[in-house]
Design a protein around this nucleic acid. Structure first.
Lengths: 110, 110
DNA sequence: TTTCATTGTTCGATTTTTTTGAACTTTCGC
DNA sequence: GCGAAAGTTCAAAAAAATCGAACAATGAAA
């Protein structure tokens, strides 16, 4: 069981973050995490295979978008809000804002 | 020669915009357009095949990120800043801002 | 008006990426 | 220990990106 990798704040690249947010599954995960604070992988109801979801969480984690800690058999995920805001001010917030409005307007990103 | 399709402002979706911006080639195009105002496809020096570039411009255009008008044999492209800002306030600006800072820090998105 | 060069699109093939189910690991509760 | 729950890994299948070649459209040159 090797430790879970997280990039240093300074190593977070805009390209990786945008690539992640550009994926509808990842964006949906981020949207949920924006509300729920901390979630296990299983807690996110998205119609994709377990292995696919696992892959997307890895993308987000390695991009520096979320932090993951093990708790028993679960992986608890949370947004790295402070790090992202420090590195790319406003980016996450404006996107979440827009996503939220789009969702309310019944135009889900999925 | 069929007319060039552009989505109405109201039909621009965040998903499509983020998908486009999440692609390094598209992001590079948008970055250039943020500075240059209007550019032909050929004016953008990016190391991809002509047909690939054409494809990326189409992605951006159909996502509502840029507008394209024909001028002779050329296709002149420009950002749909007002429409994007109206629909998703701050999103384009903060991303361009972050991209610009990343570029200056020699961490090109390409 | 007949070339000819320029600009960009379209098409089919190739390569790359994404998605998936099955098998596996880890951890906890019984 | 045994079995269930939560994720990961792996190899195969499906989907998407990339490319070169052929094509269309326009303007310029002859």
């Amino acid at each position: 069981m090797r430790p879970i990798f997280h990039p240093d704040k300074a190593d977070i690249t805009l390209g990786a973050v945008l690539y992640a947010l550009g994926d509808p599954v990842c964006l949906a995960i981020v949207q949920r995490l924006a509300i729920e604070d901390e979630l296990s992988c299983a807690a996110i109801e998205i119609p994709v295979a377990k292995s696919t979801l696992s892959h997307h969480f890895k993308i987000l984690r390695e991009a520096g978008v979320l932090h993951c800690r093990k708790q028993g058999t679960q992986h608890m995920n949370s947004l790295r809000r402070a790090d992202l805001d420090d590195r790319f001010p406003g980016v996450l917030d404006t996107i979440l804002n827009a996503a939220d409005r789009a969702t309310r307007a019944d135009q889900s990103v999925l």
